[in-house]
Design a binder for these strands. Structure first.
Lengths: 224, 224
DNA sequence: TTATTAATAATAGCATTACTATCATAAATA
DNA sequence: TATTTATGATAGTAATGCTATTATTAATAA
């Protein structure tokens, strides 16, 4: 399923728009692959340039540093995910059904549609392993002032709204929303790397994470 | 309240035991302060050495690199927290009361008791901002093989057991345990830096996080 | 006591990282 | 045709992440 896909990015995230040139698109494409393979700590612009067949200085014309690039990729992902969600819940009336659908989208490994230069399924893995490093820094405040986390907040607001539709009296819609977003990823990471922190040990099925999250969310909402 | 405090550390975390010398203790003490102030990314052994009045090479005799030092500090914290928990829930019969106590300890800023060279309240802040970077790496697998995450897993197991005592039929005790541990920290971070991801915006009170976590946990357990 | 070991400080050095700057060339546009 | 614009090629610099060597001092053993 393809969507008319163009995510409007915050211009302060880049020096030159990576969407506007071949080199820029290559930077996006190969950075996803390289971060996926090496991890964000070992990822450098030099290695990326070698991968692309360009130069370090070339990459720096697009992104100030690798942190900005990570912010770009995560912002792109949250924007993309919000579109997915609005598409997949568009015609649904029942907010509880909507919410289940959202949990599914959050916790399911995306298949890659080829509508952009970004490999969404690799990017999903990057979000799981590296996503929180985008905000767990000393510069959160400044980055936030520049609205770099807006797509994440918007997504959280959308999910919070659905939660409130399900259960208007529930007191923590936004915290519950950020909890299921984070836990969709962390439980996945734990399942694959530190399985004793979860109850999904053997089979490594995303469906179990989904069941856990559904149980968590709908017991919270049933009472209120 | 002081506890007979000596946390047994995994010997593979260090080259020389930092607990065995003045320099070692200084490394622990000042690394907590410096990581707290500069953030883990900008933290270097050079800066730490300057802070202590020792040399870079001197630090390297104790810790292979800053990642190992972070692993040491996080492991120490989880070990310390498990002791706090076992002390504060020791005489309690009712597992639900126990669980509330645990949530309080997880989400409450610790006051520093001076039983060790580590400032626990700063360390608590470090765990909030930097803790997940200890495992969100490409080397999780190897680090896990060397049992560097054992204190975290043990804590999670303890909490999981209390959850199961509350509600023997509940299917996800360990995932719920890791969820409340992570969310005690993430919701705190969000509250302070990205408040729109939470429902605690204005007052910045830990008590609200505690209420949220209690609600989350006990609605999940009520049903089963 | 002296001899020996162990821990540290002082210093140097090296490969990599994280950039910035300059210049030449090719492609796109005016 | 002239000129702007993007890229490639190359250099260079300060900081980081280490390792190695030597001298000095403190603790311990003979």
């Amino acid at each position: 399923m393809k969507l008319p896909l163009h995510i409007k990015m915050n211009e302060a995230l880049f020096l030159r728009n990576p969407d506007s040139s071949e080199l820029g698109k290559n930077i996006l494409k190969h950075s996803v692959q390289l971060i996926y393979h090496t991890g964000f700590e070992a990822f450098t612009f030099k290695k990326l340039a070698e991968e692309i067949g360009s130069t370090e200085a070339g990459i720096y014309r697009y992104f100030e540093n690798k942190h900005k690039l990570l912010l770009y990729l995560t912002a792109w992902y949250w924007g993309w995910l919000e579109i997915q969600i609005s598409f997949h819940t568009n015609n649904i009336k029942d907010p509880a059904v909507k919410l289940r659908r959202v949990i599914n989208l959050l916790a399911t490994a995306v298949e890659d549609d080829d509508t952009s230069e970004v490999n969404e399924s690799l990017l999903h893995q990057i979000i799981i392993s590296e996503g929180s490093k985008a905000y767990l820094t000393k510069q959160v405040g400044e980055d936030n002032k520049q609205h770099f986390f807006k797509p994440y907040k918007d997504l959280c607001a959308v999910i919070g709204t659905i939660i409130s539709e399900c259960s208007p009296k529930y007191k923590y819609p936004k915290s519950l929303a950020s909890t299921i977003i984070e836990m969709a990823h962390f439980q996945n990471f734990f399942m694959n790397h530190l399985p004793s922190l979860t109850d999904f040990s053997k089979n490594k099925e995303e469906s179990e994470i989904i069941s856990f999250l559904n149980d968590l969310v709908f017991s919270s909402l049933k009472k209120g």
